[in-house]
Design a binder for these strands. Structure first.
Lengths: 123, 123
DNA sequence: CGGAATCCAAGATGATACTG
DNA sequence: CAGTATCATCTTGGATTCCG
């Protein structure tokens, strides 16, 4: 009954064909989650993000921001001043995504002792 | 006031030193999220996971399962039969983590049309 | 300041073949 | 069946340099 197109959408993230798979990978990307965490607190400049997210390089920051911008999760605002000033903030959908990501992050940060405790000792 | 050790824990995921950073990366890993999604539905065998998660290789499946097992999120049960039978299931903390991940996945799958709609056309 | 471009090392990933 | 081992590849990531 389901057409090929329909089945691709129903396949969801477990299907390589479904667009949701790519969205999920972008959002759960190593640096994306940390960027979403920062922007969830408010507007940030490029240099601010670089400072707050320990260990990120300019290249990966710029690259990841671009992907999230293309996905419509981040709004990039350029101010025509010298020196340049660029601000990043979450869009509506970006806020919704960040909210879900934050729940995972908060669970980890708050439950860290229990999580580390539950780790099997013998590896 | 805060000692070095304390500040590391307070630094949370934004700090490279905090253990939560690694936990977060393991959980938001490309294949981890899909594995968690499957196991959230119940116990699965190795071959079942391989079939359900389209595009995953045996190597990455085995490797990712091992990481999640070492983190205490997955329980691996080996049955001493021929041919071999191995089952994977979530632990308590694994279920909690999967729950958070599922909220993100469900949001993406359900809101996919709106998400794709919100994507900027000019790139 | 906020990148873009380039180069290169390192690690992640995939396909295949093999084993208990 | 459930992996492991090996090799080839492909992406990631970092350092550097340059520019508006």
């Amino acid at each position: 009954m389901a057409s090929y197109e329909t089945s691709k959408l129903l396949g969801q993230v477990l299907s390589t064909e479904c667009p949701s798979r790519e969205i999920l990978e972008h959002l759960t990307n190593k640096w994306s989650v940390l960027i979403l965490r920062c922007l969830n607190e408010g507007v940030h400049r490029f240099s601010e993000l670089k400072q707050r997210i320990e260990g990120i390089s300019e290249k990966m920051l710029a690259q990841t921001l671009k992907i999230l911008e293309q996905d419509g999760f981040i709004l990039r605002t350029v101010y025509p001043v010298v020196p340049p000033k660029v601000e990043y903030q979450l869009t509506i959908t970006g806020s919704q995504a960040a909210e879900k990501v934050m729940q995972l992050i908060n669970w980890i940060e708050r439950g860290l002792p229990e999580i580390l405790e539950a780790k099997p000792k013998i590896e």
